[in-house]
């Protein structure tokens, strides 16, 4: 006899799961915001042309790119209290780990986008007498932004999926909520299948929206 699927077990607990999904979204949005802010600073440091700034930024980026994210979650949650007597609630610890780790990736996205703009564009702006900040704002960033869009979306999706690691800190996001429902219903297959479905719906819709926005941006640029 085959396995009998029972999705009613999940449906009865939909409120728990949806609350978890809400927390996942909150953590994702905050994580992207923190990651973009720190990533912007890191990219600026690496592009500054000064070793005292670019080397620390490079070391930071390489460290976070080449170590598993779960370790960073544990460090912020369990490490900080031991090392500095600073205890963070699960959300803050997860946000810190996620923000700092994704900053390393966003920094690379920003740096790559800016470096992809031809040197002739910098020279044309400088030849007009534009200062560095204005040149960046008026000439370089508008062009770089279009090239950053696709990798930025890609990185953001990675970040959304990485938020599930916050379950390991007992933060009530989607996976943690799923585990709670599993212990009550003993229906792990159904619960996790629904979780996968939820992530798929959210991320697929977001990617469709991103593609539409990108296409619109391209049309505006090629006018």
């Amino acid at each position: 006899m085959g396995y009998v699927w029972d999705f009613f077990a999940v449906a009865r607990n939909a409120d728990i799961l949806l609350a978890g999904l809400g927390q996942t979204m909150l953590l994702s949005v905050c994580g992207i915001a923190v990651g973009v802010a720190i990533g912007g600073v890191l990219a600026a440091m690496r592009l500054s042309g000064r070793r005292t700034l670019s080397w620390p930024a490079l070391a930071f980026t390489e460290f976070y790119r080449n170590t598993p994210p779960l370790v960073h979650f544990f460090w912020f949650f369990y490490g900080l209290p031991m090392a500095f007597g600073l205890t963070l609630p699960p959300f803050a610890a997860a946000l810190a780990a996620l923000g700092v780790q994704s900053a390393a990736f966003f920094a690379e996205v920003f740096r790559g986008g800016i470096l992809s703009v031809e040197t002739g564009q910098w020279e044309a702006g400088r030849a007009l007498g534009m200062g560095r900040a204005r040149l960046m704002r008026r000439i370089i960033l508008p062009q770089a932004a279009r090239r950053m869009a696709a990798p930025f979306v890609e990185r953001s999706f990675e970040l959304v999926k990485t938020t599930t690691l916050a379950a390991a800190l007992a933060f009530h996001e989607t996976i943690y909520s799923a585990m709670v429902i599993v212990t009550q219903t003993y229906r792990p297959l159904e619960v996790y299948t629904v979780v996968a479905g939820l992530f798929f719906v959210v991320l697929f819709s977001a990617s469709q929206l991103a593609e539409w926005l990108e296409a619109r941006g391209r049309r505006a640029g090629a006018r």
């Binding site: 020279e123 000439i139 062009q143 640029g221």
Partner: peptide
């Protein structure tokens, strides 16, 4: 300055 590669701002 006028450049060999024009370097107009494409956006």
């Amino acid at each position: 300055m006028v450049f060999q590669q024009f370097n107009l701002f494409p956006h």
